[in-house]
Design a protein around this nucleic acid. Structure first.
Lengths: 156, 156
DNA sequence: CGGAATCGGTACTGAATTGGTACTGTTTCA
DNA sequence: TGAAACAGTACCAATTCAGTACCGATTCCG
């Protein structure tokens, strides 16, 4: 339930990799190779992450990418928002008063409650927590391993 | 970020409506009219919800749908799972050992941490909470109203 | 100073998913 | 027995997504 695009999936893998080798500067092909992901996709995603301010890019011959901040300060919520895009919270929210004439809206506005709950959950997980060996509690849920290059979009 | 299909969106609106008029039995056209949603879609969604056990259906001339349980005992997680379908948590998870040869998987298995966090958040919200006037805290986030029939899929 | 490596942006295509519709069967009630 | 309602399935159009390609801008290094 609740889907995340493969692009975001890849993005988190890439950021995790960068976070666990924070001293190094990676370029796109290197990262792609080490993460076993297709190079063009990786390049595309890195561009996005740089534009969104999660990575800093260095151009030129010895260029590459590195994390813009410490992994402890980057939340899953940020990453997902950066990659999924801020595609507006349905038109109704963009212009606040647009559809006040619809009487069912009140029941629907509770969507915000759900949004908040999920966002909170995602804000509570940092990139740093993704690269450390899992704490004991979480290990119970770690059922299987995933195959990067072929895996379908993750369904939460 | 994180998208929910319009079908699920509609489903939650319909269930909320049913929950706030628990004594009544609705058929598909009635519900569609009151929720301002397209009839065929409503019919389709109700079938689904009935099959998933969230609604009980009554066939025949005076048939219709009603909630299978008290709104307090139905969580958002259940609803979303019912409507989004259990479309497998990526192939890798279906068969646990399939891709143990991929060394990046460890970093990816932390997806389960995210999954759990989101699921927990959604399990913590019941249908009953969706129909009560919002508690003060939540009201701060209720920015605008949504237009049912035209709204795009909600992005959390 | 010039070439090579690398990021930055955009535009395009094929495939998968979603939203929506239609039709046919089954059950129940009057 | 006929009409009303649910049940199931199959189908189509439109959007979205994954992936690719191309060209420009920037930096390093010989």
């Amino acid at each position: 339930m609740i889907r995340i695009t493969r692009q975001t999936d890849y993005g988190i893998v890439l950021l995790s990799h960068l976070a666990s080798n924070a001293e190094r500067r990676y370029n796109a092909p290197e990262l792609a190779a080490e993460a076993h992901l297709p190079v063009p996709m990786v390049a595309k995603i890195l561009k996005l992450l740089a534009r969104e301010g999660l990575l800093v890019s260095h151009r030129g011959v010895k260029g590459g990418y590195s994390l813009a901040r410490l992994p402890e300060t980057i939340s899953m919520a940020e990453i997902i928002t950066a990659l999924e895009g801020p595609i507006a919270l349905t038109e109704c929210v963009e212009e606040s008063g647009v559809c006040a004439h619809e009487p069912i809206c009140p029941s629907r506005s509770n969507w915000h409650v759900i949004s908040r709950a999920v966002r909170r959950a995602l804000e509570g997980i940092t990139l740093a927590e993704m690269i450390h060996p899992l704490p004991a509690a979480a290990k119970l849920v770690t059922l299987g391993s995933g195959r990067a290059a072929v895996s379908a979009p993750a369904n939460i």
